[in-house]
Design a protein around this nucleic acid. Structure first.
Length: 757
RNA sequence: GGCCGAUUAGCUCAGUUGGUUAGAGCGCUGCAUUCACAUUGCAGAAGUCGGAGGUUCGAAUCCUCCAUCGGCCACCA
């Protein structure tokens, strides 16, 4: 054995040995044939983006590898399934940047070409992410590798959508969507990132009133004024229709009551713009106000409704033309000047701060815009998910996230699953041109079928000519027989498909019966609402059972000072670079050691170096044993420790270390069963270094040198036991040392039985 | 405004059924180098466990209040 452990020299070969040896693939012994106490154990790797390199956060999946390797050694049929995510919008975003570098944009291509190009782009890059997972030593069953766009996955997603549609849990509605005008797509509520911002609050004269607004540009399409019904100042105006002078001439609008209006804010009067504010939109539905947009999907002001009118005052025409087609941010100051010129600007409060929705990806201000989209009615599903949590069908580690999850599930609004992206699973819904063109005919069809049809048809009729299938294009419209059917151009929110990941993947690999529900879902707490809650609600609803029985959440990996890692700060730790430099085991151990579940952690290179030193310490204990075995006789029976030897031990040092080892085994096993990985790691570390090496080994050196067979046998037994306990944490160095020391079996460490059974 | 977390040695953090002199990693100080390992060993310094009350035979741990710092959520136009 070399003087120092050199991970670079051995890790690749060891991983290859594991992988080609088939050790990652579980043996599906029938459950009734399993030994007592053994049961299937499974984890699905949260699929990383197929197109991107791993970041250090992904290395936290080491927690999963620890559980997987532990259960594999215990003899449970153990599955860790790898996967890759097409990451719809995110990948398209990256690809568009890639196109921009070539001076192109996505609009230079037709849909099919663009999809194919992105497909190729992703598949060129995909292998690197998977190899990085191998570099980290993750014992994933690559024979079951799945991709979110695999036909079998897509098939399940189609079927689920159809089922939800048939059950009336999917519907189409035109309402305000969180729209990014730069990226050209809508988002669900979860994807809007709210940021604190300082904007002027404008006080504008509105007929007899003054209103305060941060968005003066929408005033052209105000359709009402709202006041609190309890506000004595304005109570008398409720129900009145007023003519109000605006920048483009007079507008008439009604004063409506709204208990949400805060009399203390601004002047206590709120202008209502149903087309551009979610709350106003709701008021619009309540009071039958028209939805009249003035901002288009590119974020530009659209005055065509005004300019198309006849006999417009030239002054107003000039104004409208000046604003028309310009971005909101440009028009706002122009308007402010015009308001001042007309004497309508009362005052401007520059110190106004509020929270504004931005695109989580590009930072553009999100515009609420009226758009027809597919929605999932979540209430029936979230209710079941909450019940499952209450009944402890699923438990959380740490426990506090149970409350968080329930809060999320309670507060979910209906979920917009339509995205205006190309890269994704296209929604299997077709629109009938005939039904759309001929509402009368459509209405007759409704009347004719109203009493006789099944639920499914009734639903499709309600959706004015939309036909949903489980993937195939329908030949004719079931309502009117029309043949002019066009598929929705939108794709699913990736979370809609990944929310079905547990049963979609296990069906794809035909493991559903054996491994569903999976045992543990391990991921970062930051995607609890996006992913974990969605999997719970969709999984329970669509399969009748929770998709996993334990949720373990880890925290974010931050830099040495606890700062969030970011490219701009330059404090990003590249996990692969750390693996190159210190070995995968060092990085793995550093991420687990001293880290509480669900808590963010500060990771420093010093810490990784410290764990590299620990690997070297192990190596040298191994080396010491190997050298002493050569002095005595490595194949002498007495050097093979067995349980019966315990009774024969004469030397108190040997007795003590054996007893300490047994306590260690018990402690580590208990910690692992309780998901206390840090505790287990620290126990092994301290025992190895400070009990075994510093004390036992030093005190008994003379005995080893003299070739005391019993002393050496005990030492080796203790050390090999440590190798087993530590293998889930530091698989490479333990496997390598294991291979260097003579032992009873030729099996690799990865499948050697867990001690203490 | 609501919810959740954090506050323990210079730094980063463990400390889950409340129990003897409070722990780790890194850093620091002194000594040691043909001995498995300097990616080392030995010795050591260093904490009134954020503050104030309370419960208890006993509190870093449970309760109340306060302070500071974070995170997440919410339709203040």
């Amino acid at each position: 054995m070399d003087k120092a452990y050199n991970p670079q020299a051995v890790e690749e070969a060891i991983y290859k040995m594991w992988e080609t040896g088939g050790y990652f693939t579980p043996k599906l012994i029938p459950k009734e044939a399993l030994p007592a106490g053994r049961q299937p154990f499974s984890i699905l790797l949260p699929p990383p983006n197929a197109n991107a390199d791993l970041h250090v956060g992904h290395a936290m999946y080491v927690v999963e590898d620890i559980m997987i390797r532990y259960h594999r050694m215990k003899g449970d049929p153990t599955l860790w399934m790898p996967g890759a995510d097409h990451a719809g919008f995110e990948t398209q975003y990256v690809y568009e940047k890639h196109l921009a570098k070539q001076g192109k944009s996505r609009f230079d291509f037709d849909r099919e070409t663009l999809y194919k190009d992105i497909w190729n782009f992703v598949h060129t890059n995909r292998g690197s992410m998977e190899n990085q997972l191998r570099r980290l030593g993750f014992s994933l069953d690559w024979s079951r590798n799945v991709f979110t766009l695999d036909p079998s996955i897509v098939e399940t997603v189609y079927k689920s959508f159809k089922q939800l549609f048939d059950e009336g849990l999917v519907y189409r509605d035109k309402r305000l969507v969180n729209y990014c005008t730069k990226d050209g797509t809508g988002f669900s509520d979860l994807e809007v990132l709210y940021v604190e911002r300082n904007d002027p609050l404008y006080y504008i004269k509105y007929g007899p009133f003054t209103i305060a607004t941060a968005r003066p540009e929408t005033k052209f399409r105000d359709t009402a004024l709202a006041v609190n019904p309890k506000d004595k100042r304005y109570k008398k105006y409720i129900g009145q229709t007023l003519e109000i002078m605006g920048l483009l001439g007079p507008i008439t609008m009604t004063v409506i009551p709204d208990p949400h209006v805060d009399p203390k804010f601004g002047t206590g009067i709120m202008k209502v713009t149903p087309a551009h504010d979610p709350h106003d939109f709701e008021l619009g539905r309540q009071f039958n106000l028209p939805v009249t947009p003035i901002i288009d999907f590119r974020g530009k002001m659209d005055f065509s409704w005004f300019l198309s009118q006849k006999d417009i005052d030239p002054k107003y025409r000039a104004r409208a033309e000046n604003y028309h087609g310009k971005k909101v941010a440009i028009v706002r100051p122009l308007m402010v000047e015009d308001l001042k010129a007309d004497g309508l600007m009362i005052k401007i409060d520059e110190a106004y701060t509020h929270r504004i929705g931005t695109c989580w990806k590009c930072g553009t201000v999100i515009e609420p815009l009226p758009l027809e989209q597919w929605y999932v009615k979540v209430a029936p599903m979230t209710k079941k998910a909450i019940e499952a949590i209450n009944k402890k069908q699923v438990t959380f580690v740490p426990k506090r996230f149970e409350k968080t999850a329930k809060q999320w599930l309670t507060n979910f609004h209906d979920w917009n699953i339509s995205r205006q992206n190309v890269w994704g699973i296209r929604i299997p819904a077709w629109h009938c041109a005939l039904c759309a063109q001929n509402p009368t005919r459509f209405a007759k069809a409704i009347a004719r079928r109203a009493n006789t049809t099944n639920k499914s048809n009734a639903q499709s009729i309600r959706l004015s000519g939309w036909v949903v299938t489980d993937g195939e294009k329908p030949e004719t419209c079931p309502t009117c027989g029309g043949r002019d059917l066009t598929q929705d151009t939108d794709t699913f929110d990736t979370w809609f498909s990944s929310g079905q990941w547990p049963f979609a993947t296990l069906r794809a690999t035909r493991d559903f019966d054996y491994f569903y529900p999976t045992t543990v879902m391990e991921t970062g707490y930051d995607i609890l609402p996006w992913w974990v809650c969605r999997m719970l609600m969709l999984g329970i609803h669509l399969t009748g059972s929770v998709p996993f029985t334990t949720v373990y959440l880890h925290g974010l990996v931050r830099d040495a000072q606890g700062q969030k890692m970011s490219k701009s700060k330059g404090n990003v730790i590249n996990p692969l670079k750390m693996v190159d430099q210190y070995g995968a085991d060092a990085l793995r151990m550093a991420l687990v050691f001293g880290t509480g579940a669900g808590n963010d952690q500060a990771l420093s290179e010093d810490k990784i170096r410290g764990m590299r030193n620990f690997a070297n310490k192990l190596w040298n204990i191994g080396r010491f044993i190997e050298m002493n075995l050569q002095i005595s006789n490595p194949y002498d029976q007495i050097t093979i420790y067995d349980e019966n030897m315990h009774k024969m031990l004469k030397n108190p040092n040997d007795k003590r270390i054996i007893s300490q080892t047994n306590m260690l085994v018990a402690g580590v096993t208990k910690d692992l069963d309780r998901y206390r990985f840090s505790d287990a790691a620290q126990k092994i570390y301290n025992f190895t270094w400070h009990t075994l090496a510093d004390v036992h080994l030093e005190k008994n050196k003379e005995r080893f040198k003299e070739g005391d067979g019993q002393a050496i046998a005990v030492l080796r037994h203790v050390f090999l036991t440590i190798m087993k306990l530590l293998h889930p944490f530091m698989p490479f160095v333990t496997e390598e040392i294991w291979s260097k020391l003579p032992r009873k079996t030729t099996d690799p460490l990865i499948i050697s039985p867990w001690p203490g059974n």
